[in-house]
Simulated scan of single mutants.
Amino acid sequence: MKRKSIFFVTIAFIAGYILGKQLDQKQKLKPENVLKMVKTKYQKQYEVSGSWIYMKPELYQKNNIQYDVYHGGITKQIDGKDIPYEFFVDAYTGTLIEIFPQHG
């Protein structure tokens, strides 16, 4: 009976370890890193004069798909004018979901 208990405890420990590793792989990116990725991408084409990002992810829906996203913005210089843009980036993959001129 004691061997069975040790066997089941060992199996439970291994299963918990594997599950924990899988959960670690599904962590959100740091918002600072997301902002840096967006800025780097757009600095190749435009001069970026400002940027911001919300630190807490939010839900965002596009094409009937719901994402956990970081919402942020950059200011690009185009033809000598500062044009503010907003963006939404997938919080897990860093994929740019949408970028558009800021309203207002």
Rank of each mutant, 00 (worst) to 15 (best):
K44C: 01
T10L: 14
V89E: 01
T95W: 06
D90P: 04
I99N: 12
K41F: 13
G94W: 10
I6P: 00
Q43K: 11
Y54V: 11
K56Q: 14
F100I: 05
L23S: 12
I99M: 14
Y17M: 10
P84A: 02
I99H: 11
Q66F: 06
Y70Q: 03
I99W: 11
Q61H: 04
I99D: 09
V89T: 05
K21H: 13
G50I: 12
W52V: 01
G72N: 08
Q27I: 01
Y46Q: 04
Y46L: 12
N33I: 00
L59Y: 04
T40W: 11
Q61M: 05
L29S: 06
N63Q: 13
G20F: 15
K21F: 13
Q66H: 03
G16M: 10
K81W: 02
G94P: 05
I11W: 11
V69M: 09
L19F: 10
G50E: 11
E58W: 00
N33Y: 13
K39Y: 01
K39V: 11
H103C: 02
I78H: 05
I97V: 04
L59P: 02
V89F: 07
I65H: 00
E32F: 08
K26H: 11
V9R: 12
V9L: 15
M37G: 04
K4G: 02
E86M: 08
I6H: 09
D82R: 13
Q102M: 12
Q102I: 00
K26Q: 12
I83C: 04
P57W: 11
K41G: 00
P31R: 06
K81S: 09
M37Q: 15
R3Q: 13
E86I: 08
G104R: 02
S5K: 09
D68G: 08
